[in-house]
Simulated scan of single mutants.
Amino acid sequence: MSWEDATMQITVLAVPGCPNAPVVRERIRAALDGRPADLDLVEVHDEAEAARLGMTGSPTVLLDGVDPFAAAGTAVPTVSCRLYRDMDGRVDGAPSVAALRQALAAEVDVLDPIGRGGRGRLAPVSGGLRAVQQAVLRHFAEAGAAPAPALLEPVSAPFGRRAGEVLAELAREDFVTLDEAGRIRAAYPFSARPTRHRVRIIGGPEVWSMCAIDALGVGAMLDTDVVVSSSDPMTDARVTITVHDGQSTWEPADAVVFVGRRACSGSAAAVCCDALNFFTGRASAAAWAIRHPDVTGRVVDQARAEELGRQTFGLLLSEG
């Protein structure tokens, strides 16, 4: 399954009898223009339910759990009627088809940086790139830290290149990131510096990972059991994922992952790694998204997050 294959979950939150609920559903279908999506209407009866579900007026539209029309710092839970302003300044009781199309389009390329625009995270064989990349990854997995460039000289030498030269090329192609001295700061999915995401490799060391998707990809890449420990950036509450014999257990059981990116160019580390996090639930993820209007993203459930980890990192240590 590719990122584009994942069916978007669209939820309309509305009070019973809201006259704009059928209007917004019709406009969503028009904006989708045949694109597959799961579209649900959820009735909300009181303020407590509105707070739990992330409703900030009736109707509220959630794209994979995130309200793309929420204004930072102003959205509060309510069952009152909600008004939307279109691009010409007109006020309406539902977002326009144009606004919905814009919000849907913003979701499509959110993982391009981490997946290198569909090119994947496995480096090419030529020039010793893959051999050095895999040597770096194996060193992280065995030692829990990045190798010094000098340790990679025996790997790059058969290709007639110095390790520093190969690492610099890997960095230009965003397979690794380097500091000013040419030392490895990150080799996706691993980080040489502390992050929010810690992965304990059963039978091996503990390592830091760059983001939530990276953390979920470590076990798949190494084909081993792991325990991922992270925290919700809204509440600092602990999120733990235990993977044993290919089966995962998430604590808390309602935990999700928010996958996002910033509106800039550069490496995945700069564009999206700090915007891919674990949350204790959809409400917490949606609240974080509202506080970070510079981040475009969506909430994914546990199964999708694990699949993205496997898809991105599962083959990085494959032969050939």
Rank of each mutant, 00 (worst) to 15 (best):
M1Q: 12
S2F: 03
D5V: 05
A6R: 14
P16G: 03
G17L: 07
C18R: 03
P19Q: 13
P22S: 00
R27T: 07
I28V: 15
R29L: 11
A31F: 02
L32P: 09
V44F: 05
A48C: 09
E49H: 15
E49C: 07
A50G: 02
A51H: 05
L53C: 02
M55H: 03
P59M: 01
T60C: 04
L62D: 02
L62A: 02
L63C: 09
D64N: 13
V66T: 03
F69P: 00
A70H: 00
G73W: 07
P77G: 15
S80N: 14
D92G: 12
G93P: 01
G93E: 00
G93L: 03
P95I: 02
A98E: 14
A103N: 03
A105D: 13
V110Q: 00
V110A: 09
D112C: 01
G115D: 14
G115P: 00
A123V: 06
P124G: 05
L129K: 06
A131Y: 12
V132G: 00
R138S: 09
R138P: 06
A141S: 05
A145I: 05
A148M: 03
L151A: 15
P154N: 05
V155D: 06
S156A: 15
G160N: 11
A163R: 10
G164T: 01
E165T: 06
V166H: 10
L167N: 12
E169Q: 15
A171D: 07
E173P: 03
E173F: 11
V176E: 10
V176C: 13
T177D: 14
E180N: 11
E180C: 04
R183Q: 14
R185V: 15
A187G: 07
R193Q: 14
H197Q: 08
G203K: 11
E206F: 02
E206C: 04
L216R: 10
L216V: 06
G217T: 00
G217F: 01
V218M: 11
G219H: 04
A220E: 14
M221C: 01
T224M: 01
V228D: 09
S229Q: 12
P233M: 07
P233I: 06
P233N: 07
T235K: 02
T235C: 03
D236N: 13
T242C: 07
A253E: 15
A255D: 00
V259Q: 08
G266D: 10
S267E: 08
S267K: 04
A268L: 03
V271T: 08
A275M: 11
L276I: 15
L276F: 11
L276D: 14
G281T: 08
A283D: 02
A285I: 09
A286N: 15
A289Q: 01
H292Q: 06
V295G: 02
T296L: 12
R298A: 14
R298Y: 07
V299W: 06
D301L: 11
Q302H: 08
L308M: 06
R310G: 11
F313L: 05
L315Q: 09
L316R: 04
E319A: 12
